[in-house]
């Protein structure tokens, strides 16, 4: 018994050391956000010793973080809604319907996954510019209304729903759209939840595309606003960390609430039997 207990302790020791490397930067961000400017250069404690919550107010007044937040929320909502509807419809067609060029179309999607964003970003940018969508919600949202990852994720899940359920509904005279809406969508709710979380995190954290298609503070998303804040207030670590923390909170909250669905999603798309 003794060696097993020792082994378990060693396992915990290594895991805790690793967890510290992960957590300390986050803790440092929190602590620094509550210090005075002088303290940020002199105080070495990793736990907060002073509690200057007003730093958050100052940071939010120094830059239009409220507007950035709103822009990110609008963009994320649009993208999540788009993925849930457009990806789901396409995924159902690939999972259940038989039509010409099905394999070819699916292969094209898989191949597109391998193409780095950089290849498509210049033409996509020119296209959006020619539509007059620079510095608009349309420019932020429309090009990302559908994505290949979501189609693959949902297709995978739809295929696991027993066909018999759908066949029974067909015999009862239900149309394909009716089957999709009344049977498949309710049964696939966990997969929709997973996709919604992935899409939200993607949209909230996205950087390069919003950087290119926004010019003004009215349309900048939180990540772009934050990176501009570094340039303007780079030496005020406390305000900078207050801004960074507020930009990070939504992702962390979503993650903590939906951790299970997220991990299940990775298992679903990562490993295929």
């Amino acid at each position: 018994m003794r060696p097993r207990l020792l082994g378990r302790l060693a396992r915990h020791a290594v895991l805790i050391a690793g967890a510290a490397v992960v957590v300390v930067p986050f803790l440092w961000m929190f602590t620094t956000s509550l210090q005075t400017r002088a303290e940020t250069y002199t105080n070495d404690s990793i736990l907060p010793t002073s509690w200057h919550w007003e730093n958050y107010v100052t940071a939010w007044q120094a830059a239009p973080f409220g507007q950035y937040y709103l822009n990110s929320l609008v963009m994320a909502t649009g993208i999540v809604a788009g993925h849930l509807v457009l990806d789901a419809l396409a995924a159902y067609a690939f999972a259940r319907l038989d039509f010409p060029l099905k394999r070819a179309l699916f292969t094209v999607l898989l191949a597109a996954l391998m193409v780095p964003t950089f290849v498509t970003i210049i033409p996509a940018y020119s296209l959006v510019a020619s539509f007059g969508w620079i510095d608009s919600y349309a420019g932020l949202i429309v090009p990302r209304l559908a994505d290949v990852f979501g189609i693959i994720l949902l297709r995978q899940y739809f295929s696991t729903i027993p066909v018999e359920l759908e066949e029974a509904a067909r015999i009862d005279g239900c149309s394909r759209l009716g089957i999709f809406w009344r049977i498949v969508v309710p049964l696939a709710r966990p997969a929709f939840a997973t996709l919604a979380i992935f899409s939200f995190l993607f949209a909230w954290n996205d950087f390069l595309w919003p950087l290119l298609v926004t010019n003004s503070d009215d349309l900048r998303t939180i990540q772009i606003g934050l990176s501009a804040f570094v340039g303007r207030y780079g030496t005020s670590w406390n305000y900078l960390m207050a801004g960074t923390l507020t930009a990070t909170v939504p992702s962390i909250v979503v993650f903590m609430i939906f951790q299970r669905a997220l991990v299940r999603g990775i298992a679903m798309t990562g490993v295929k039997d």
Binding site: V115, V119, T120, L127, D147
Partner: peptide
């Protein structure tokens, strides 16, 4: 709908 978006903003740009 999905192919319209992906076609215009991903496949055509390639």
């Amino acid at each position: 709908p999905a192919f319209a978006v992906l076609g215009v903003f991903v496949l055509y740009p390639i």
